[in-house]
Simulated assay, not measured.
Amino acid sequence: MSKKVSLLPSAEALSPQHKKLNKLIEQIEQQKQDLTLWQNAKSEIQSYIQLKLVPIYRDLHAVYYRQLAQLWLHLQQEDFAKADLAQLDEKLTKLAKQLKKSNYLNTAELEKVAEVDSFYQQHHAHRQKPNKKAKSAQAEQRKAERHVDIEQEAAEEHESYEAWDSEQYQREKEEHQRKRLEQKREQAEKLAEQSLKTVYLKITAMIHPDREPDESKKAEKTELLQVVNQAHEAQDLFYLLKLQLQLETNKGKSPKALTDEHLKFYKMALEAQSQRLTSQIDDITDSFHWSEKPKPKNMQVKDVYKVIDGDVSVLKEQVKWEKERLKYMEKVKGLEVLLAQNVL
């Protein structure tokens, strides 16, 4: 809000619940400042990404596509040894997977990528079926040759079941915890809506200008009431609750208007707001994080530029190497060199 409200240092007037609430309020205030900083920086960072990263990714995908088209052509026209075919299949599968959702290829190029990708999906599915039968036959043969003990098999099956059961339990536990957390957040948001009106009415009763005989204080309260009305319209429980605690502390007495039960429920509502702010910040920082490395903890705006610059440096080297590799792929003899050195 436009009017700054600061907490008084006289913490002795506050109960333990109030102190916890004040700490949460300070945390939210910092999160709001951080979110504003990220929102203000978002446009500039996106422009920087468009300027630095997008052209390199466009170049990289163009080189990848030329590699795919060239290898696919060689595969149709030339005969290769079984080991070399395996390398070619692996490389083409990887290129098709990388390019099938590319934003940098035209329609004809994407159709070619889809053709290659579809071929290898069918090829992989076809190879899987006989492999399963072969593995099953080999397993049966080993059992016959080694006279596997039935009890040992039962024990192994039991261990396998226990492992599955443990994983299943863990998944169900995590899902249950997720649902409980979601329910708590929904409850907190409902409580926030209910408490917004209560806090607003208490504040307006305490600062109403018509009840103030002192003209200078009346003008101050009139200005504050305007800010309070803005906060109410914006459903900013954070600001209103902080102001209520400030006003009650200004009276020099322990705020009895808020019971411990009320404080717990306000705390839950503010925790939900804090979580929403965290999610909003994460959404922005995640959209800027292109690197394969983990996102830095407590990421700052300056960190984004460092990550982008680092990615640019790495990608430039990669584009350079991929272009060099493409030169070898364009001729059969060059391709044979790559295959022989296993650097396709």
Rank of each mutant, 00 (worst) to 15 (best):
E215H: 04
I203P: 00
S313P: 01
V227Y: 01
K173V: 07
E324H: 09
P294N: 08
H262V: 09
A272E: 05
T198R: 11
N298S: 11
L21E: 03
K218L: 08
P130H: 11
Q318Y: 03
R185Q: 12
Y64H: 11
D84K: 09
K101Q: 15
Q87G: 09
T278P: 01
V113N: 02
F288P: 02
G334V: 06
H61M: 07
E189V: 00
D286Q: 15
K190G: 07
E220Y: 02
L245H: 01
T93I: 06
A11R: 08
S195P: 00
R58V: 04
V199W: 05
E29C: 00
K129H: 13
V314D: 10
Y48M: 09
Y169H: 09
Y57W: 13
L75P: 01
K4E: 13
V5C: 05
P130S: 09
A134T: 13
E78D: 14
K327D: 15
G310F: 03
E78S: 10
L95F: 08
A86L: 12
K267Q: 15
D303H: 11
Q77V: 14
K82Y: 11
E111N: 11
Q235L: 09
H262T: 09
K316L: 08
E336H: 07
Q187V: 05
V148C: 04
Y266L: 14
L335A: 03
Q230V: 11
P296K: 03
Q194P: 00
K4Q: 11
L75G: 01
E167M: 11
L51R: 10
K197C: 00
P255R: 06
S291D: 11
V337W: 10
E157P: 00
N22E: 10
L245P: 02
L338S: 04
V54I: 12
K217A: 14
E159M: 11
S287L: 06
R325Q: 12
S10L: 08
E261K: 04
E115S: 13
M329T: 02
E174A: 12
Y200L: 05
A155Y: 12
